Computed example of a mutant assay.
Amino acid sequence: MRAQQAATTLVAVGVTGWAARRVLTRRAARNSPAAEQSHWRFVTVNVAPEQVRPFPQPLRELDAEIVVRPAPGGRGTEIGVRLNEGEPTGAKAAAQRFAGTDPRQAVRKALRDAKQLLETGEILSPDRPGTNTKTLTGKPLELAIAHAKGEGKQ
């Protein structure tokens, strides 16, 4: 019985130490100058680099730095965008994301729309559900469609 209690205590101390290190590491990362910078987000388009300029309207609306470079292996062009202001973190970021006002969502949407404009000449939109009747169970689907272009891996 005592061995089991000792093992449980060791596990609890180990998990507590791990959690404390994780919190301190994240806090230090948030307070560092690098935390104020935005991440680059890229999209590959199937056009030559010369065809990307002037930038499509969705990219011109952003307050961001934009780079254009040939994609590896001669497979089109990469367009990269990084916000000029820092990205939100913590509770502020969660609230903005939920409200649909997160600047990262605007970058993702602009990149997707620019890709569609460059490759097809128009911005495509998903089909709406087949019914016009608003239902409680259809609300999650409506929200998912409304926020789909602003979401992504990063």
Rank of each mutant, 00 (worst) to 15 (best):
E36F: 08
W18G: 03
E36N: 09
I66Y: 02
V15F: 09
L141M: 08
A144M: 12
G73I: 15
P72N: 00
R30M: 13
W18Y: 12
N31W: 11
Q57A: 15
Q116Y: 01
G90W: 08
T135E: 07
G130K: 11
G152K: 03
G121C: 04
V68D: 02
K153F: 13
A28T: 14
V67Q: 11
A110D: 00
V23L: 14
P49W: 15
T25P: 02
R27E: 15
Q116H: 05
A71D: 04
N46P: 01
R112A: 15
R22D: 14
V13C: 09
V45I: 05
L24Y: 02
T77G: 01
L141E: 10
T137G: 06
G76R: 06
Q37E: 14
A95G: 03
A48P: 01
P103E: 07
F98I: 06
E87L: 08
A7R: 14
A93W: 09
R22G: 01
E50M: 07
E65W: 09
A148P: 03
K139A: 11
L124P: 00
L83G: 04
A64Q: 05
G80Y: 03
Q57M: 02
L59V: 01
L124V: 15
R26G: 08
E50Q: 13
G73T: 12
N46A: 15
A95L: 09
